[in-house]
């Protein structure tokens, strides 16, 4: 991955055209609806968020491997910060400090060269890194000689690091693959399409609540519609993103994105519901916090990366 490689990559250029085309079409539709007198206030705010996020991701991927890893590490750091602020863990500087260091560590192992196998990204260390961070987190109350309330702090720090830091960190690790453009763009695009499909199907056909105590607006219709779309999408992007995949991997891709994406979404809803908040923050106008945007990617990223890595040469 490099600016030069991106300019010569059909995969990068095609995704660039698809994404910018979608942005342009969506902008046009919203503009026309607005002119027709429809209330597009909320949609417009959400669109403005996309108008920043899509070019930002494109720019980082264009710049190359290190920029991509750095970008997703930063996203994880900001995401964990939102989680810490929402749960109250942010008052515990030792715990949050260790988690920040842990996330930074994941980023460094994603970015560095494997010292043994001499290839980009030290995957072995990246995978065992949680063992070190968990130990460090457990060490915090011991070093401070404290016990009261520490189980809660430990549990929150573990969830924060493992879920938001390390699992999400797999998105950045995809930049180390020889098929980085195809993998990265497919994963991000498919997860967002899955989100949009769930919303659209739910809005149009939604009757039966999916999990009424967790996210009252989500419906079975929306969820199954999104799964159907996600099952079809890998076939459409087959030749573009991963021509070496067999139908088996295409089906697995659809399942991982269709089910995992919605699981991630619901898992974040459980957290928000228990905390009694609507959004995890207000960083991205019209979308809420950064965690509200990336929640569906978190479960999908490690599952999909390891699926692709298991069946095919990654480097």
């Amino acid at each position: 991955m490099s600016p030069e490689a991106a300019l010569h990559s059909d995969v990068f250029l095609t995704y660039l055209a698809i994404l910018l085309g979608l942005l342009a079409v969506a902008g046009g539709v919203i503009g026309v609806l607005g002119l027709l007198g429809k209330d597009v206030g909320h949609t417009w705010r959400a669109y403005r968020g996309w108008l920043v996020m899509i070019p930002l991701v494109l720019a980082c991927v264009f710049l190359g491997r290190l920029a991509t890893v750095a970008f997703f590490t930063l996203v994880a750091i900001v995401g964990f910060k939102e989680f810490a602020r929402a749960t109250g863990l942010y008052r515990d500087w030792w715990m949050t400090g260790v988690v920040y260091a842990g996330i930074l560590g994941s980023g460094v192992f994603s970015a560095m060269t494997d010292p043994v196998l001499d290839r980009p990204g030290w995957y072995g260390m990246f995978v065992v890194w949680p063992a070190f961070v968990i130990t460090l987190i457990l060490l915090v109350p011991i070093l401070r000689n404290r016990s009261e309330g520490q189980l809660q702090a430990i549990a929150l720090a573990l969830l924060g690091f493992l879920y938001i830091g390390w699992m999400f960190g797999h998105v950045g690790f995809l930049a180390n693959s020889k098929d980085a453009y195809g993998y990265l763009f497919y994963l991000i695009f498919a997860v967002e399409v899955n989100d949009v499909a769930a919303f659209t199907f739910g809005r149009t056909f939604g009757r039966h609540p999916l999990r009424s105590n967790i996210s009252p607006k989500k419906t079975w219709e929306g969820s199954l519609g999104a799964l159907a779309v996600s099952m079809v999408l890998p076939w459409l992007l087959w030749k573009l993103s991963f021509p070496h995949f067999t139908p088996r991997e295409l089906i697995l891709s659809g399942l991982i994105v269709g089910v995992g994406g919605q699981l991630g979404d619901l898992a974040m809803s459980v957290i928000k519901r228990d905390l009694g908040i609507k959004d995890m923050g207000a960083l991205i106008g019209g979308h809420g916090g950064i965690l509200d945007r990336i929640d569906s990617l978190i479960c999908v990223a490690p599952l999909w990366l390891n699926m692709a890595r298991y069946f095919h040469e990654f480097y």
Binding site: R85, G88, D274, G276, D279, G281
Partner: peptide, 11 residues
Amino acid sequence: YDTAEDIEASL
């Protein structure tokens, strides 16, 4: 839980 009071405020 002790959620930050300014959780809904922008940066």
